[in-house]
Write a protein that binds this DNA or RNA. Structure first.
Lengths: 223, 223
DNA sequence: CGGGGCTTTGAGAATCTTCAATTTAAGTGG
DNA sequence: CCACTTAAATTGAAGATTCTCAAAGCCCCG
């Protein structure tokens, strides 16, 4: 049975959607740049985007993967701290002018509550991400990453998901090398926990087995 | 010059404070337990607390350190996913009944805006934490941890901060072994980047040197 | 058919974990 | 005040894991 992720993303209300302007992006296109003013909130409608930073040593860090229903841009007034780019053609992102949204929230408690819940959803997702990145071994990281992805992405009839990102992106997301990602996936397949038709087509075979690679134990509906 | 942290914590407004009830905790006491309903928001007034989870393998993970001015408890309705305990005697935490706070927010846009900004502050802190935990080597993790702590904690005249947590806690926070924490600190001291009067009394000597162990580069006031 | 990106696999060097022992600091009770 | 006990912190060494550099295979697309 499908277990929905804790921080399950969702659609915007009509009120907020009325303020939004949607744009479409090709693979690699920048949705918002590092250092841009924090005057816009974003909502992913279709496709996927990644939040990126460049380290002092020239290395790239991916600090977030945004899938349909996810929000980003919820910063304090200091401006955006990283750039966001589309990872596939046809990605659609809705932009919401922050000032107008906040004015709307001031006049309508329902909207204020919605924004609050969107922010809480972001918090829940970040905490989940922190657990994934905070695992000790590469295999655990990759295992919990795949587990997380299989619940955030759409699954086809066979229970397969299509990873929107490359091994390199996964590596930058998990703070390990791309080779370690590849090796971990091979090992998980060898252990019979996952199945790969193609490199990016993943099916989880042993859900409870991979669950050990998921999270610390906490109350949740079983299987 | 002191650089304030991105997600700088702050005091509550009078309106929210009026709803709060403060309690004092000794070292190790539980502020809120895993699996408790998500009906309370918390605000650390004094001392420090840690957010803990227990992994499937019995290992403990510390998924957050809460210092004065920090909030926690901003979850969706699913209930708390981890426990929070005091890490020192005399820790004071304010509890805010969520229901009453949300009703207040519904009637007063100023309060709604404050809660929103508190949530955005939590988001900023989680992203910072993600960068720290997401560093590759143990030395980088410890270096950026100390950098982060030196900006979140009060500094005395000599620029020293007193770490509220043990090496073991730091290890669980950074997802490395306690020995690696100790070794990294020794090496950072050997490199002349920090100074240790006592094991938990840290002074950063070479701020720009340790900055390399801090964050990916992004716009920020210099030094 | 060739080029380029993505993925996988191999081997040596570097790092980390684990287990163990030692040192230091902090209480406790006489 | 001192001996004793306990927790915290440091250091050492062997084993395991990962990173880096390198090479090879795969696949799409021009």
């Amino acid at each position: 049975m499908a277990v929905q992720n804790t921080g399950s993303a969702r659609d915007l209300s009509k009120q907020l959607s009325a303020l939004a302007m949607t744009s479409q992006y090709d693979k690699g296109e920048e949705v918002c740049g590092q250092g841009e003013p924090a005057d816009t909130w974003y909502h992913v409608v279709k496709g996927a985007t990644r939040r990126c930073m460049v380290c002092a040593d020239g290395r790239r860090r991916i600090v977030g993967l945004l899938l349909p229903g996810d929000c980003f841009g919820f910063t304090l007034n200091r401006g955006s701290d990283c750039s966001v780019e589309s990872v596939m053609d046809g990605t659609i992102v809705a932009s919401i002018p922050r000032r107008r949204a906040e004015m709307l929230a001031d006049s309508d408690p329902i909207v204020a509550r919605e924004i609050r819940e969107l922010a809480f959803t972001v918090i829940a997702q970040l905490q989940t991400q922190l657990l994934v990145v905070g695992r000790t071994t590469a295999r655990e990281k990759v295992g919990s990453f795949l587990f997380e992805m299989s619940h955030r992405l759409e699954r086809d009839d066979g229970g397969r998901v299509v990873l929107p990102v490359s091994r390199y992106d996964i590596a930058d997301y998990l703070a390990i090398s791309a080779e370690a990602v590849s090796r971990s996936i091979s090992r998980l397949r060898g252990l019979g926990l996952i199945n790969l038709a193609e490199p990016r087509h993943v099916r989880i075979l042993n859900n409870s087995g991979l669950r050990n690679y998921e999270h610390p134990v906490h109350p949740r509906a079983s299987t």
